[in-house]
Amino acid sequence: MDQPVSLRERKKNQTRYLLMRTALDLFEQRGFDQVSVAEVAAASSVSKKTVFNYFACKEDLILGAGKHHIDEPAVVVRERRPGQTPHGAMREYLLTALAERQPMIGLSDSPYVRRLQKLIANTPALTARNLHYQGQSRRLLAEVLVEEGVSEVSASLIAAQILAVQEVLAATNAHRVIAGESPDAVYPDAVAATEHAFHLLERGLGDLLRRPKASVTPPGTD
Score class of each variant (00 low, 15 high):
residue 157 L to K: 09
residue 135 G to W: 09
residue 75 V to H: 07
residue 178 I to S: 06
residue 209 L to Q: 08
residue 133 Y to Q: 03
residue 19 L to G: 02
residue 50 T to W: 04
residue 85 T to H: 05
residue 219 P to E: 15
residue 112 Y to N: 03
residue 151 S to I: 06
residue 86 P to R: 06
residue 58 K to Y: 01
residue 67 K to V: 11
residue 213 K to S: 13
residue 214 A to R: 10
residue 155 A to V: 02
residue 140 L to E: 13
residue 82 P to T: 04
residue 154 S to Y: 07
residue 76 V to P: 00
residue 31 G to A: 12
residue 72 E to V: 12
residue 181 E to W: 06
residue 6 S to D: 10
residue 49 K to Q: 13
residue 47 S to T: 05
residue 4 P to N: 05
residue 155 A to C: 03
residue 131 L to S: 14
residue 81 R to A: 14
residue 114 R to L: 15
residue 176 R to W: 10
residue 78 R to L: 07
residue 9 E to Y: 03
residue 98 L to G: 02
residue 42 A to M: 14
residue 56 A to C: 03
residue 80 R to T: 03
residue 140 L to V: 06
residue 62 I to T: 00
residue 197 A to Q: 01
residue 120 I to E: 07
residue 68 H to W: 13
residue 130 N to S: 15
residue 38 A to M: 12
residue 73 P to I: 04
residue 92 E to R: 15
residue 172 T to S: 11
residue 77 V to M: 06
residue 185 A to V: 07
residue 113 V to H: 08
residue 58 K to A: 00
residue 35 V to L: 04
residue 109 D to L: 04
residue 208 L to T: 15
residue 119 L to G: 03
residue 121 A to I: 08
residue 137 S to R: 09
residue 140 L to F: 11
residue 9 E to C: 06
residue 36 S to E: 12
residue 125 A to L: 11
residue 50 T to L: 07
residue 24 L to R: 14
residue 165 V to L: 11
residue 111 P to A: 05
residue 198 F to G: 00
residue 10 R to C: 09
residue 61 L to K: 01
residue 128 A to M: 07
residue 56 A to M: 05
residue 165 V to C: 14
residue 160 A to M: 11
residue 72 E to I: 10
residue 7 L to G: 07
residue 184 D to I: 09
residue 69 H to R: 09
residue 207 D to W: 05
residue 100 E to L: 13
residue 105 I to H: 00
residue 186 V to Q: 01
residue 68 H to E: 14
residue 81 R to G: 09
residue 91 R to E: 08
residue 97 A to E: 10
residue 178 I to N: 03
residue 202 E to P: 03
residue 115 R to A: 14
residue 51 V to M: 00
residue 216 V to S: 09
residue 215 S to N: 06
residue 17 Y to E: 15
residue 33 D to L: 13
residue 165 V to P: 04
residue 162 I to R: 05
residue 204 G to C: 04
residue 100 E to A: 13
residue 119 L to H: 02
residue 36 S to T: 15
residue 28 E to S: 15
residue 161 Q to H: 09
residue 198 F to A: 01
residue 164 A to H: 07
residue 15 T to K: 04
residue 88 G to Q: 09
residue 152 E to W: 09
residue 74 A to D: 00
residue 158 I to F: 08
residue 191 V to W: 00
residue 207 D to L: 11
residue 50 T to Q: 05
residue 44 S to E: 02
residue 16 R to V: 11
residue 180 G to I: 05
residue 122 N to L: 10
residue 5 V to L: 15
residue 31 G to Q: 11
residue 150 V to H: 10
residue 11 K to S: 12
residue 36 S to K: 14
residue 159 A to N: 04
residue 46 V to F: 02
residue 107 L to I: 02
residue 120 I to K: 07
residue 89 A to N: 04
residue 17 Y to A: 12
residue 164 A to T: 10
residue 127 T to R: 15
residue 35 V to D: 01
residue 57 C to I: 05
residue 219 P to N: 08
residue 18 L to P: 05
residue 18 L to C: 09
residue 95 L to T: 07
residue 149 G to D: 05
residue 160 A to G: 12
residue 54 Y to V: 02
residue 155 A to E: 01
residue 45 S to E: 13
residue 126 L to V: 05
residue 208 L to F: 14
residue 145 L to R: 00
residue 201 L to N: 03
